[in-house]
């Protein structure tokens, strides 16, 4: 069969399923089989992911059933679920679970709503708007370690500007001391995290806003829709993908909460800001209880998997409506 005729015929599966490389040769140029190319292309990533994420994670899983410590006179042996029993009985870990839950439940909706508000605000075509966009985004480009160090100083009850202003306004009455107060420390961490993260979400949502068809707004205009109605029935549905993306990513990052806490409070005062990750680093590195630290890693993974799965299901249900 002449090659040209073969090529000219529209292939039945040209549009559905992944592209087929196999079987299309032209003038004897060698075209490797698609499955080979697929593995060649994804090979480097697969090897790296396996070596540096999968293997260490499986090691952590294995270690979590042993009594491994960094330096220990005892021989390493299997201890079954002992580490899991211990971490769930550990009041500090319980506290960290609650803190992670509070942080996520507050930060995900508040930060997303705030970022949506910002995105709508900076989507106006007015003078100096790019200046404001950059200002709102600026915290995102700060290294978390740096931002947290600065905020530690801002929050300081004696030398910080925040309590300084509160004292000046209240005549010296009010000086909550944020990071040093076990009642307020978590709120302070939450506030700082929203300050740092909102700008990134704003950019994602702004990009989505700019993709919404302007004619929809014009049509709504003619139908006499109010600003709220336009926002509710055009903007929000139009941003659905971006909102889902932002909420999912923020949820995962919320559970990972570590850097700002580690720099600002190390989990204190009185474990008021302990999170699963600070507890993991504390147990695994500082106390060198590697096996128990690994058990925390496994529990963390299972919890986040579960939360992500539930989120997926909820969103899919919505979509089906």
């Amino acid at each position: 069969m002449p090659t040209d005729a073969l090529l000219a015929r529209p292939r039945p599966n040209a549009r559905d399923g992944p592209t087929r490389w196999f079987g299309y040769r032209r003038r004897h140029t060698y075209q490797p089989a698609e499955r080979t190319v697929g593995w060649l292309f994804s090979g480097p990533a697969v090897v790296l992911l396996t070596l540096f994420i999968v293997v260490p994670f499986l090691l952590a899983l294995g270690l979590s059933f042993t009594n491994q410590r960094l330096i220990s006179p005892l021989p390493v042996r299997l201890v079954g679920m002992e580490n899991y029993r211990r971490i769930f009985a550990d009041p500090v870990f319980q506290r960290s679970l609650v803190n992670n839950a509070v942080f996520t439940v507050v930060v995900v909706p508040v930060q997303t709503a705030f970022a949506l508000f910002l995105a709508v605000l900076v989507n106006q075509k007015i003078r100096f708007i790019s200046f404001f966009r950059t200002a709102y985004f600026a915290p995102v480009v700060m290294i978390m370690a740096v931002a947290a160090t600065i905020w530690k100083l801002l929050y300081d009850p004696d030398i910080g500007i925040i309590d300084g202003v509160l004292r000046a306004v209240s005549g010296g009455q009010l000086s909550p001391g944020w990071l040093r107060s076990s009642a307020l420390a978590l709120s302070a961490v939450i506030f700082m995290s929203i300050w740092q993260g909102a700008g990134f979400q704003m950019v994602v949502l702004l990009a989505g806003l700019q993709d919404i068809d302007q004619e929809l707004y014009e049509a709504a205009e003619i139908d006499g829709a109010s600003r709220w109605q336009k926002f509710r029935y055009i903007t929000v549905p139009g941003l659905r993908n971006q909102l889902v993306f932002v909420a999912t990513v923020t949820t995962i990052l919320s559970f990972r909460l570590f850097d700002q806490v580690y720099v600002m409070t190390r989990g204190g005062p009185l474990d008021a800001t302990q999170t699963m990750m600070t507890r993991l680093v504390d147990v695994g590195f500082n106390q060198q209880a590697i096996a128990r630290g690994s058990a925390i890693a496994v529990v963390f993974f299972l919890i986040v998997c579960l939360v992500t799965l539930v989120q997926r299901l909820l969103l899919r249900e919505r979509e089906a409506d």
Binding site: L49, F52, I53, F57, F300
Partner: peptide, 21 residues
Amino acid sequence: GMVVTLAIIPFQAIAIPLLFM
């Protein structure tokens, strides 16, 4: 599936065994 699942694992969770390796 692996890529989506691995995206969940934070670095801190694998830091200990990775350090050993």
